[in-house]
Amino acid sequence: MAKVKIEKDRCKGCELCVFYCPLKSLELSSDLNKRGVRAANFKKDAKCSGCGFCFLICADRCIKVEK
């Protein structure tokens, strides 16, 4: 199973990864990061197929997908 790693303090909270995740495994976290935005977060115990859509659409190199 693939693993999504998110650098929260880089995230600008555009929410595109949340919108495009086919398994709806991402969400915006409830707390704020250093930039003062709600960063993307991988849901607890959620599934990941490793499609890389979140990596492809992320403009701020926050997301790494490792298989």
Binding site: R10, C14, L16, V37, L56, C58, A59, D60, R61
Partner: peptide, 17 residues
């Protein structure tokens, strides 16, 4: 490995990559 100055949701970051 630096943060960009682009706005949230801007396409430049993707295209740079």
């Amino acid at each position: 490995d630096v943060n960009t100055h682009y706005c949230s949701g801007c396409g430049h970051g993707i295209l740079h990559r």
